[in-house]
Design a protein around this nucleic acid. Structure first.
Lengths: 219, 219
DNA sequence: CGGGGCCTTGATGCTGTTCAAATAGAGTGG
DNA sequence: CCACTCTATTTGAACAGCATCAAGGCCCCG
């Protein structure tokens, strides 16, 4: 189960690089908690009194509408800080994408102990979230299904240091992030493979065969 | 640098409502500049060295794709602070929706002069942007055309203190914000009017006739 | 009164959804 | 290791919602 996690654990470079001191502060004050696949880390409308960092595994933030429609806000990987909602309670819930280890720290405790470190950490994470959200808005508002899927694959590929890229989420997670259905995601993946842009060796592993074409498709 | 953030990091209220002191600081340091309808306030990929506040009029932030597709990030109204991109350069450009007056201040100057005020101001604005962006992601990813239009009308109505609400943007602006076309926006408006949820007295003025129904439609 | 921009409405088409079924993988116990 | 089951994924066919294309109407402003 943790096989795929290993791959991602060494690829924290694309994330908002934690400086030594920030890591140290959270390491000191925080608690490492294990979460199993699909387990909730925090809930929608829960108080936002903690701050979280992925140590191993991966996380999604999701929002459910009353009738069951689901939107994924973002994915987080080892080294990424999340749960930095700007206001008192969470709009999205957070769940483990696979078995994961999460570093959890109380905001208040850390603030009292760490001087300005905590504020810098929150600012950094919120900035990252805002930029990603802006990209996400463009993707959902104006990109075609094929462009959306290509964008996700490229970003996964950019995170990875291997040529072989592992997809850490299910088709349903991809669909709910991209504002599509699983069927459409599946079709687009088949299409990208048929046109020799990527090649899947398993359901969750692919290689980029034509990076230029993939990049062009993301618009 | 962001020492002052701490006051706000755990604060419930991320509303853009300027406190007296913030207004004073920007008023002191900033310059009031007039912009005419559709005039650019700052450009995509420009350095983000200023901070802006709407004094009169309204502003949209937009992003253009290479082939001309356009996505509007958000709308800003009097009292709102904008241009608070988290990183060095802007992802979106900002333009005046109508003839407007914008208070412009140099971040560096204000930071040197204002102690922590500047950081609080930026944090507050960025928090607001992040929350709005999250709502926008849900709207674009999972809402139907009708729900999207209803959501916009309700938010316009909530901003307004009058029963008669003015729509400050064109149909094209609405469409590019909602990820739709002008035709679809127009059809949904007609539909909402036909079902007696709202009533337009002119192209840019309406009244909410059935607020409960409108709210239900926004999901 | 006339021109031009913006908006609405209608007809048609395409992209992505829905519904349905087949296939592939992963997990389990013999 | 294999058979079995359950779930995830793919594929196909029909459909729906929104886009596109094309007129026509409204309104502002000279």
């Amino acid at each position: 189960m943790f096989a795929a996690i290993q791959t991602f654990a060494c690829e924290a470079d694309a994330s908002p690089a934690p400086t030594g001191s920030l890591t140290d502060l959270m390491d000191q004050m925080g608690v490492r908690m294990p979460f199993s696949r699909n387990e909730e880390i925090y809930g929608q409308e829960e108080q936002a009194e903690f701050i979280y960092r992925v140590v191993e595994g991966a996380v999604r933030t999701t929002r459910l509408m009353t009738d069951g429609r689901r939107q994924i806000g973002d994915f987080y990987y080892p080294g990424d800080t999340f749960g930095v909602e700007p206001v008192s309670d969470h709009l999205f819930s957070a769940e483990a994408l696979c078995d994961s280890v999460i570093l959890v720290a109380k905001r208040r405790t850390m603030r009292d102990a760490g001087g300005g470190e905590m504020d810098r950490l929150i600012w950094r994470a919120a900035s990252h979230d805002l930029r990603r959200a802006h990209e996400h808005v463009l993707l959902l508002g104006r990109k075609t299904a094929c462009e959306r899927v290509a964008t996700l694959l490229l970003s996964l590929s950019d995170r990875s240091c291997e040529t072989q890229v592992t997809v850490p989420m299910s088709r349903l997670d991809m669909a709910d992030y991209l504002g599509l259905t699983i069927e459409t995601v599946s079709r687009m993946l088949s299409q990208l493979q048929a046109s020799a842009v990527v090649e899947f060796s398993g359901l969750r592993d692919f290689q980029v065969k034509n990076r230029q074409a993939l990049a062009r498709l993301t618009q």
